[in-house]
């Protein structure tokens, strides 16, 4: 392997990490309002949350990425490819993570909310000071799974020519024609990156675990 090829792979891996973390950050920013909207007492707000989840869970990452990169410029919006990738990944994962937030909030025992009410907390205070601190801990393992899913999903945006690990691997393959080595190597590379992310998630889980 030449140093130019190694450079391509390292740059691609860096882009893949950027897409994973950027997409996940956007997903978390979306997930909390969406999850809270899903458990709102207001029917209209609930409908908004439901619509977001259905729409963006239904729209696959590749569908969104294709549209952002190939259709949106026709409307006069030319997005930076990496930004378009993060947008597609984050909007989609935001719907899944929103469901994680909803599930965790609903899993907090009703007695906790009753206790907050009995202590004369306003509903918003009860949510912020009683329910959410417990729910967030319950979300961490699921968010950890989402990070791994997000890592795997980043490969998809290679199809719209974003120069991440898979795309750069394809570049090398088109140069040397050694499909087995390149794609086998990519699989192992993603496996290693998944392992690193998993270890990070486990450490985080341990830090916030119930004591």
């Amino acid at each position: 392997m030449s140093s130019a090829q190694l450079g391509l792979l390292l740059y691609g891996a860096w882009k893949t990490i950027l897409l994973t973390l950027g997409g996940m950050a956007l997903a978390l920013v979306i997930a909390f309002p969406v999850g809270l909207a899903r458990v709102s007492h207001n029917k209209f707000v609930r409908a908004i949350g439901f619509t977001y989840v259905e729409l963006f869970r239904g729209a696959a990452v590749l569908v969104l990425a294709f549209w952002f990169v190939y259709a949106l410029p026709s409307l006069g919006w030319q997005l930076d490819p990496t930004f378009a990738g993060i947008l597609a990944l984050g909007l989609n994962m935001g719907a899944y993570s929103g469901e994680v937030v909803r599930g965790a909030i609903q899993a907090v025992p009703p007695g906790q909310i009753e206790a907050a009410t009995a202590l004369n907390f306003k509903p918003s205070q009860g949510m912020r000071r009683v329910v959410l601190p417990q729910a967030v801990r319950a979300m961490i393992p699921s968010f950890g799974n989402n990070v791994i899913e997000q890592l795997k999903a980043t490969a998809v945006v290679a199809v719209v020519s974003i120069p991440e690990l898979t795309f750069n691997g394809q570049l090398i393959w088109s140069g040397n024609g050694r499909a087995a080595a390149v794609f086998g190597g990519l699989l192992i590379g993603y496996g290693l990156m998944a392992l690193i992310f998993m270890t990070g998630v486990k450490l985080l889980e341990r830090r916030v675990a119930w004591t």
Binding site: I148, K152, A153, T154, A155, V156, A158, V159, T166, G169, Q170, A179, F183, G184, L186, L187, Y190, G191, A194
Partner: peptide, 11 residues
Amino acid sequence: RGTPLLIQLFF
């Protein structure tokens, strides 16, 4: 399960 479907398709 831990690696992307896309690369498995290429493979």
